[in-house]
């Protein structure tokens, strides 16, 4: 079962303990090795898997630490960043980084101590390396990990420019990025009891049992106007049992009815990410599906027109926020979504 035969006595003991019992700290070498000795057995106990080659690691090891570890060489300008941003980012984050209801990426510096903190990338972030890392790994939202190193530098530069941290004619490279000091650089603390299981709590309640409070004052309750904000609560409690649900809104379909089988156009729109920018009945970033349906329904060639817009993107029909091309959506899905929109998005 075990391949190795040159283990130290300590490692052998640790291995036996690990086999014999849980929890496993007994196998933790820190407890069984002395200073200066290797932390773990020099030979794997099981040897499953395969060695990771430097090339394989390089392809996946994309994280960037605040000290610059992992940040590749490269450069990008604010101007270049603006071009990429307008094409791929502004539809969600707003032309000036004010956001279209997504997390804003600019503004709010100096508001965190007040009663109405404005939480943005600019007001919260402590290290520009984290911004670079996140854009590189997770943006654009619907096509992550598709930007080049230069584009990531350029976008980082442009976001920093939107936050008044770089001039419009600036170019950002590795050294310049690491030299930046962000406004909230010292805004974080690790002086709390939440990092370890034995950490010291910051509240000290006492388990009093009788006559614990002289007065109990109601400080907050659900306002009557919000009664139906989460739908009809009567339909959110099990149908059988000693408690019913409070009727807070008009009844939906009859009890026991099952959801319709198979995805419809609305479900496909959700599944393909269209609902990130389009609401069914309300404008988010782009127009609502019902607005679109209202404009195009009955028009000659409407289905082909809308399908082409989904494929290739567009700008101008509903304002100056461009819709990025969506070539990744399957042909059949495009057809079903467009038909659903033209049918009134019901």
């Amino acid at each position: 079962m075990f391949r190795c035969c040159r283990r130290s006595v300590a490692a052998a003991v640790a291995a036996v303990l690990a086999l014999a019992a849980t929890p496993l700290p007994a196998a933790a070498p820190a407890a069984t090795t002395s200073a200066g000795s290797p932390a773990t057995p020099s030979t794997p106990r099981f040897g499953f898997g395969k060695p990771a080659t430097p090339q394989e690691i390089a392809g996946w090891d994309i994280d960037v630490r605040p000290d610059g570890t992992g940040l590749p060489p490269g450069r990008g300008s604010v101007a270049q960043g603006q071009r990429v941003y307008d094409e791929k980012c502004a539809s969600c984050h707003g032309t000036f980084g004010e956001s279209n209801d997504y997390m804003a990426i600019a503004g709010g510096v100096g508001t965190l101590a007040g009663d109405a903190p404005i939480r943005t990338t600019g007001s919260k972030l402590n290290h520009a390396t984290t911004l670079w890392d996140y854009i590189n790994r997770a943006m654009p939202f619907n096509a992550p990990k598709t930007l080049t190193v230069e584009e990531v530098y350029a976008l980082t530069a442009y976001v920093l420019h939107l936050n008044d941290l770089l001039p419009a004619d600036a170019t950002l490279d590795r050294d310049a990025l690491l030299a930046l000091r962000l406004p909230n650089r010292d805004g974080f603390t690790q002086d709390h009891g939440f990092m370890t299981r034995s950490g010291r709590p910051d509240t000290r309640n006492v388990a009093c049992m009788t006559n614990c409070a002289a007065e109990v004052r109601l400080s907050s309750e659900m306002p009557e106007h919000a009664r139906d904000a989460h739908g009809n609560l009567a339909e959110q409690v099990r149908d059988v049992g000693p408690l019913a649900g409070a009727k807070t809104a008009a009844a939906a379909p009859a009890r026991g009815s099952l959801p319709a089988a198979g995805p419809d156009g609305g479900e496909l729109a959700k599944g393909n990410g269209c609902t990130a920018c389009h609401g069914t009945a309300s404008k988010i970033v782009g127009p609502s599906f019902r607005e679109i349906g209202g404009r195009y329904a009955g028009a000659a060639g409407a289905e082909a027109t809308l399908a082409a817009k989904v494929r290739s993107g567009g700008v101008g029909a509903w304002g100056q926020v461009p819709m990025p091309p969506q070539p990744q959506v399957k042909e059949a899905d495009v057809t079903a979504i467009v038909q659903w929109i033209l049918g009134g998005a019901r």
């Binding site: 101590a113 903190p117 919260k124 805004g187 603390t189």
Partner: peptide, 22 residues
Amino acid sequence: NTREESLHYVDLMPGGKHRQYT
């Protein structure tokens, strides 16, 4: 100090500092 440890999942305290790695 990842995004999910600096822009989110940090606890804003009175005074404007965030507790990090909570």
